[in-house]
Amino acid sequence: MVSWLIFPLQLALAVPTVSPHVPVTQDAAAQDAAIPVGVPRWSREVVLKGTALKVRPADIETPLIVRIDSDSPHGTDRRYDFEYYGLEPGTYNLLDFLQRADGSEMGPLPPLQIHIESHLPAGQVKPNPVTQGTTPDLGGYARTLWILGIGWGLGTLIWWLKGRQKVQAARALEDAPPPTLAERLAPLVERGVRGELPLEEQARLELILIAIWRKRLGIQDLPAAEVLVHLKQHAEAGVLLGELERWLHSPDSAAGGGAVDPAQLLAPYRNLTAEDWDREWEATAPGADALGQDG
């Protein structure tokens, strides 16, 4: 009897996979492949001869948990769907974990072998320590869009603020009173006294002095052609402009032989503020307030 039982088992061991005549939906490769401990697998449409089978009661030490998902007649045989997972590594025959529902003998059945293996090294009971993997990018394309959107928004804001600052600065400059003639004259006189006046500023100095005296004598309304004629008739302005012309335009001065000393010529015009000019103007041309208005 025992030999009758052992023979099919030996036969099954000799055949590494489920017998070919057993229709199993799980492919053979998957069946042959080692199944990790604790991972469920299924064998479906398994046709076995004999009466109905049921799972043999298991105890706490059982190395394999088997469950019959379905059991239906198949002619004179029965067709089963099995689900199982291993708790201990090793090679098992599913039939060892089944029995006849009516208590009869199992009879000669082809073995249903499975191989359970552990990923842990032999002897290791506890699981491997958790290794820290790389964190995948968060957000992906949506995050990129958000970054671009925020960057665009910030850029626009900065551009708008800068533009506003420029407009405000320009407006402030426009609203600010233009520099007075005295303010324009002061640096030119200082450099002129020191003899450091470049050519362009010499020209400006001369024209500003003309403008100042023109204003001071209240002859802004005179045509330009008559202004200098008028100024030269003035005792103080005439001397100044004459000396200025000798200094800036005379060929003697150009040859370095001029008798005009710029420091002495410009000395009276040093450190004069707009208020000083106004006071002197009032003193020079009393009653000229009406002429002093713009226009």
Binding site: P179, T180, L181, A182, R184, D278, W281, D289, G292, Q293
Partner: peptide, 8 residues
């Protein structure tokens, strides 16, 4: 100011 500025 009484107009001693450039504008004058």
């Amino acid at each position: 100011t009484n107009g001693s500025r450039v504008t004058a």
